[in-house]
Amino acid sequence: MHSLTWLVFLGIAAYFFSEGLSNVFPKIPSILTITTIGILLAQLPFVNKLHGAHTLGLYLVFLFLAVIGAYCEISSVMELQQIGITLLLFASVAVLIHGALLIILGGLLYRDWDMIAIVSQANIGGGTTAIALAETFERNELILPAILVGTLGNALGTYLGFLVVYVL
């Protein structure tokens, strides 16, 4: 209970700190601030020693996936008309090419299909969905690498995306 109290306190404190910082610097989105705070907090030995973070995090990941899944509707894509269909086709082709390359290269070079599936999921769906897949395959040694690879892609993409927006 002690660890859970600290985890909830740190999460709420990080949220309020990031919201306050976004009022001072309105050009920096609060999601970037809270993500950076979370990354910094994860480096502290005190936070690393808190128990229950894995269980709480996994529960919140499953909740996140359920919410995302609830909002995935083809009718929403169709409401966007031509641009929605174009984006859907672009994403489908990108995933198809990714899958073909991964199956061909994975089959030729590395035949651990569980690992290949988790790597693919980290690439396409991000770290959160890769955690769920690693848990499903009972490959606990791949949970941390899946989180790191997925998070690295999300972080680089997010920070670089905002940089491009500010430059343009």
Score class of each variant (00 low, 15 high):
residue 3 S to W: 00
residue 3 S to G: 13
residue 4 L to H: 07
residue 6 W to A: 08
residue 13 A to R: 15
residue 14 A to L: 06
residue 16 F to Y: 08
residue 16 F to S: 01
residue 18 S to Q: 08
residue 22 S to I: 02
residue 22 S to Y: 09
residue 23 N to Y: 14
residue 24 V to G: 05
residue 24 V to Y: 08
residue 24 V to A: 15
residue 28 I to A: 15
residue 29 P to G: 07
residue 32 L to H: 13
residue 36 T to S: 14
residue 36 T to V: 15
residue 42 A to E: 10
residue 44 L to Q: 03
residue 44 L to W: 09
residue 51 H to P: 02
residue 52 G to D: 05
residue 53 A to I: 08
residue 55 T to A: 10
residue 58 L to A: 09
residue 59 Y to G: 12
residue 60 L to S: 14
residue 61 V to R: 06
residue 62 F to T: 03
residue 67 V to D: 13
residue 69 G to A: 05
residue 74 I to S: 07
residue 75 S to A: 11
residue 76 S to N: 15
residue 79 E to F: 03
residue 82 Q to Y: 04
residue 83 I to M: 12
residue 84 G to W: 04
residue 85 I to A: 14
residue 86 T to D: 06
residue 87 L to A: 11
residue 87 L to E: 04
residue 89 L to T: 09
residue 89 L to P: 04
residue 89 L to F: 07
residue 91 A to R: 02
residue 95 V to N: 06
residue 96 L to T: 08
residue 98 H to F: 08
residue 101 L to Q: 02
residue 101 L to H: 05
residue 101 L to W: 00
residue 102 L to M: 12
residue 102 L to Y: 00
residue 103 I to E: 11
residue 104 I to R: 05
residue 106 G to V: 03
residue 106 G to N: 04
residue 108 L to E: 06
residue 108 L to I: 11
residue 110 Y to K: 07
residue 112 D to I: 07
residue 114 D to E: 06
residue 114 D to K: 10
residue 123 N to H: 09
residue 124 I to A: 12
residue 126 G to M: 13
residue 127 G to V: 11
residue 127 G to Q: 02
residue 129 T to K: 03
residue 131 I to V: 15
residue 131 I to F: 01
residue 132 A to P: 01
residue 133 L to V: 12
residue 134 A to G: 07
residue 139 R to N: 14
residue 140 N to Y: 04
residue 140 N to W: 11
residue 140 N to R: 14
residue 140 N to I: 07
residue 141 E to G: 04
residue 145 P to H: 12
residue 146 A to D: 01
residue 147 I to D: 10
residue 147 I to A: 13
residue 148 L to C: 08
residue 151 T to G: 02
residue 155 A to V: 06
residue 159 Y to T: 05
residue 161 G to N: 13
residue 162 F to Q: 01
residue 162 F to L: 14
residue 164 V to G: 06
residue 165 V to G: 03
residue 165 V to L: 15
residue 167 V to R: 10
